[in-house]
């Protein structure tokens, strides 16, 4: 096997050395006024990387699907990636990472948000509900039942986002007509094209009058 450029091949000692170097440098940094020229120097010396490494984790408390979580996360971690990669809640989907498709829709304190455009650390102390948190044991949420009945999906990838949005759409009072539902669900793309079935599911749940 040819050579790999791998940090793993460096000794553990050199790694901790670099951390010590950083601490020295950061002491200098905090003592200095951060002028542009110093900032430039910092960039050249890769201090930015080291800064990130040292300060990367921030404490975060979240209630996810009714369970309190005390976490340490990097500030750049999105709520979506936190759910999928660290909490193993992969029901929330990544479809674009730019807030354009709605596949990552979750509820934060009961309101729909795009978790890909939401930094996890900004949600400290809030309640997050994902698709995994809708059913009560074996009892599906009425919206999940309606999606099943009306076949409001094909591949299933946009489905969690559609369902979370659909519930919010009713809660917001934006489900009074099919036209209105289509408008207020337009942030959730379904490339398989199950739209009319999704609309039918929402209409049924809305007409059913149950609290969602």
């Amino acid at each position: 096997m040819s050579k790999i450029n791998s940090r793993d091949q460096q000794s553990g000692e050199s790694k901790s050395d670099s951390r010590r170097d950083f601490l020295k440098q950061s002491a200098v940094l905090t003592g200095a006024v951060l002028t542009p020229s110093i900032a430039l120097k910092a960039a050249e010396a890769q201090w930015d990387e080291k800064l990130a490494e040292a300060l990367e984790k921030i404490p975060l408390k979240l209630e996810v699907n009714g369970v309190s979580k005390s976490l340490m996360v990097e500030p750049r971690v999105t709520l979506l990636d936190l759910l999928r990669e660290q909490l193993n809640l992969t029901g929330t989907k990544k479809g674009c990472d730019y807030g354009q498709c709605g596949a990552c829709t979750v509820h934060v304190n009961g309101t729909r948000v795009l978790s890909c455009l939401t930094l996890a650390v900004m949600q400290d102390g809030r309640k997050v509900t994902t698709i995994e948190g809708l059913a009560e044991g074996d009892q599906l949420h009425p919206m999940q039942e309606a999606f099943l009945k009306h076949d409001g999906f094909q591949c299933g990838y946009c489905t969690p986002g559609q369902i979370m949005s659909a519930i919010a759409c009713i809660r917001e009072g934006h489900a009074d007509s099919e036209e209105e539902i289509r408008e207020y669900m337009s942030g959730n793309i379904c490339r398989c094209g199950a739209y009319p079935n999704i609309v039918n599911a929402i209409v049924e749940v809305k007409k059913g009058g149950k609290k969602v």
């Binding site: 809640l89 929330t92 990544k94 995994e132 999606f147 099943l148 076949d151 299933g156 969690p160």
Partner: peptide
């Protein structure tokens, strides 16, 4: 008939390629 894998899809339990830990 409803889809046999429908429940997995509406509950987020269906696993796609990037979702194996």
């Amino acid at each position: 008939m409803n889809r046999v894998d429908g429940k997995l899809k509406v509950t987020g339990a269906a696993r796609y390629s990037a979702e194996y830990q």
